[in-house]
Write a protein that binds this DNA or RNA. Structure first.
Length: 472
RNA sequence: GGAGAGGUGGCAGAGCGGUUGAUUGCACCGGUCUUGAAAACCGGCAGGGGUUCACGCCCCUCGUGGGUUCGAAUCCCACCCUCUCCGCCA
């Protein structure tokens, strides 16, 4: 049974596959296919009718868009398209006339001779049009989403706006350890072993720490499904189409682990990719909205631009796990849905008794596809700072347009782009770090938050190696 | 991996190379009838794009790409996907 109605037509998406069917070349070549495909990113009409407004909006993100050049290109496109379609119409008319003449038993040879020149003209016009459209598509697929009106101005994280703080950082009357020290003390965290097996930025977890990691996953899935999210289990390997749909491609291939063999697939950088793409290429019935999904998955990131950052511990790994929340909603509901998805993520932090703050990202600090983003940052006592543990974004129709995700408007009967959102609920590795650090005790043990204890066989603390196992 | 079958509108399912972008059924929307509903009957109903103030007109799309032809859902080639049987396998 299908989870979602799949559009059998699949008329769109001629796109990426065709365009990048050219093997393991550069991921940057991945493009939507021209014309009749709706996976261009920003609304093509907005781009055509008011390119300067687009340029102004994108400038808030620090993105330069040459509106005049684009407008000039579009003028060429228009002329070429008109000419091409006129030629096609002419050819269709004549061919139809030949058919009728033949049916009437007339001699069609003279008619055929008349049409012969048309073919060449048409082919030439098509080629030209094709080139211009390809150029336009390349530009469009590289344009980030427009920031929502309410997004704070600014180009860097320094311009982010703190919305609220929840929970008081605990006072410690001993020297606060970081999670690496705590994890090693518990004999539960081993970076050296992972380095031997693989390399840098991996960790082997063991015993109580591994169990705590698993408990966090189970607790989060339980909490979110109880709140109405439908649990999913999805592929961790995806194709280029899916990554284009959510916006990782064509621009951010460097952040991905790519499997060139035996197939040109990618490891997912987040479950957002497979889950959001469930609605790719389909028309969802209006009553089915909102769709709310939760899934647990590993995430694989090359961290290409992060050399030297967060090298110690589990903050920044090539492989980590995450519980992800995804919603597909009616366009009118996406603003409220962002608040709701953020609240879902916050409920986990509250249950885990972790102090955190909520930050509205500035226009220039948001991800490529996001129209508005709230980050949740958890308090890390050793670093004496708040660190990102969840990112909740409203993508508006940006991803929906790229992947062809629509719902049927009951009033008009016509398909319309739906809105997509997602948020981490939460990143498991960082949640583990936060629990270890915030709930550490003077003796090196770690108190298990009450909410987690049922998923830990009822134990209330993790004890350092050498101490008696676990208190009841 | 081997052998076979197949991919057509929201779904199901037709379609001698020529007024077929596509018969029909279901679903859906509107109407008649009814106190109301159901049934019955009548009508409407694929997606995308261009152009137009608008009515409308035009182009593209029958898995994807290419080829043959004046003309392709229909013929040819390649690829992708699905199903059945066999092999392998958690």
């Amino acid at each position: 049974m299908a989870i979602l109605p799949r559009g059998a037509s699949a008329a769109r998406r001629v796109g990426v596959r065709a365009a990048c069917g050219l093997q393991a070349t550069d991921a940057a070549h991945i493009m939507p296919r021209k014309s009749q495909v709706l996976d261009v990113m920003l609304d093509p009409r907005l781009l055509r009718n008011d390119p300067h407004a687009v340029a102004t909006a994108l400038a808030r993100r620090g993105f330069e868009f040459d509106a005049d050049a684009y407008a000039a290109l579009d003028a060429r496109r228009k002329a070429l398209q008109t000419r091409t379609e006129e030629l096609q119409a002419e050819r269709n008319r004549r061919s139809k006339a030949i058919g009728q003449a033949k049916a009437a038993g007339e001699d069609i040879e003279p008619l055929k001779a008349e049409v012969s020149g048309l073919g060449d003209q048409l082919e030439a016009a098509k080629r030209e049009l094709d080139a211009v459209q390809t150029e336009q598509d390349e530009i469009r697929s590289g344009l980030p989403n427009l920031p929502h009106d309410g997004v704070p101005d600014g180009l860097s994280e320094d311009d982010n706006v703190e919305l609220r703080r929840v929970g008081e950082p605990a006072g410690f009357d001993f020297e606060v350890r970081d999670h690496v020290e705590i994890g090693e003390g518990l004999a539960g965290m081993d970076a050296a072993a992972a380095a031997k097996i693989t390399g840098a930025r991996f960790t082997v977890m063991k015993g109580g720490v591994a169990r705590l990691h698993r408990a966090l996953i189970a607790f989060m899935l339980e909490t979110h499904t109880a709140a109405g999210y439908t649990e999913l289990n999805v592929p961790y390997i995806v194709n280029a189409d899916s990554l284009f749909g959510t916006g990782q491609l064509p621009k951010f291939g460097d952040d991905l682990f790519r499997l060139a063999e035996p197939a040109d697939y990618y490891l997912i950088p987040t479950a957002e990719v497979p889950v959001t793409n469930l609605v790719a290429d389909s028309i969802v019935e209006a009553e089915a909205l909102p769709l709310r999904f939760v899934t647990h998955s590993p995430c694989f990131r090359a961290e290409a631009g992060a050399a030297g950052r967060d090298v110690r511990g589990m903050i920044r790994q090539h492989q980590f796990e995450k519980v992800e929340l995804v919603r597909m909603v009616h366009p009118d509901d996406s603003e409220a849905a962002l608040e709701a998805i953020t609240a879902s993520a916050e409920s986990i932090l509250q249950a885990l008794e972790l102090p955190y703050r909520v930050v509205a990202l500035a226009a220039g600090d948001m991800g490529f596809a996001a129209g508005r983003t709230y980050d949740l940052e958890v308090w890390l006592p050793n670093q004496r700072t708040y660190r990102e543990i969840s990112s909740c974004s409203n993508f508006g129709d940006f991803q929906a347009r790229r992947m062809g995700a629509r719902y049927r408007d009951p009033d008009t009967g016509k398909p319309r782009l739906l809105h997509t959102l997602n948020g981490s609920g939460l990143a498991i590795g960082r949640a583990l770090v936060a629990v270890l650090e915030n709930h550490q005790q003077a003796d090196g043990s770690v108190a298990i938050p009450a909410a987690l204890q049922p998923f830990m066989g009822g134990i209330t603390r993790l004890a350092p190696a050498g101490q008696a196992a676990a208190a009841q």
